[in-house]
């Protein structure tokens, strides 16, 4: 793994960081679109009417803590502690799944309360932004599960801890995006109808 690269950095990790730089523009566009439309709720519910801040706070906290378990998984594999690595990978995936479960619950509740995908520009922008984030989390869960499977096949060892590190970077990135979404979309006072 100690490839001789010009910068001394591994190709994979550098590529992941370049990709994350690119992702900033993707989520930036989605968040800006949402901000543009947060007042455009037409006849449907307004964000201030419908957001359930206590509920979202809990799921936000869950996702935040999954960053901790992710970094613990990495620390474990880096010192060759395969057992704890598996434990923390599994915990991270589970916390991610809880977050996604929360999102599914939130979406179904909103739909029941009359906020469908096509209700208003606000609803389209909201579901698209949080949906994109949810897809990112789900892909992260798939990657974590793939890591777990390859660990049980004996293919995830201290030597390829970098794989865990790179998937971890992705995971943390998805988490920091949610940090922004939680504040900007949920906590900043929202218009009511």
């Amino acid at each position: 793994m100690s490839e001789e690269t010009t910068t001394g950095l591994s190709h994979n990790k550098l590529a992941m960081w370049v990709f994350l730089g690119s992702e900033c523009l993707l989520f930036g566009a989605l968040i800006s679109t949402y901000l543009l439309y947060r007042n455009k709720f037409y006849d449907g519910p307004a964000p201030g009417d419908i957001f359930d801040i206590p509920f979202t706070s809990v799921s936000s906290f869950v996702l935040l803590m999954s960053s901790l378990t992710m970094v613990l998984a990495l620390a474990a594999i880096q010192r060759g502690d395969i057992r704890n690595n598996r434990l923390w990978l599994l915990t991270t995936a589970l916390l991610g799944a809880v977050f996604i479960g929360g999102q599914v619950y939130e979406f179904t509740t909103f739909i029941r309360e009359g906020l469908g995908y096509t209700t208003s520009p606000f609803s389209s922008a909201f579901f698209t932004l949080t949906g994109f984030h949810g897809v990112h989390v789900s892909l992260g869960i798939v990657m974590l599960m793939s890591l777990l499977i390859s660990s049980y096949r004996g293919k995830l060892t201290q030597k390829n801890s970098e794989t865990v590190e790179i998937i971890g970077l992705y995971w943390h990135f998805v988490d920091v995006v949610w940090i922004i979404i939680f504040t900007v979309i949920y906590l900043v006072p929202n218009p009511t109808s």
Binding site: C24, L25, E165, H172, D175, V176
Partner: peptide, 29 residues
């Protein structure tokens, strides 16, 4: 945001090149 990026994503300890790409993306965005 900064705490997660600096500590959990190891930007504090890692190559400045990574920070540069990430910060470029953030600042540009």
């Amino acid at each position: 945001f900064w705490i997660v990026a600096a500590w959990f994503m190891h930007l504090r300890f890692d190559s400045k090149m990574f920070t540069r790409f990430f910060v470029s993306g953030i600042v540009l965005a």
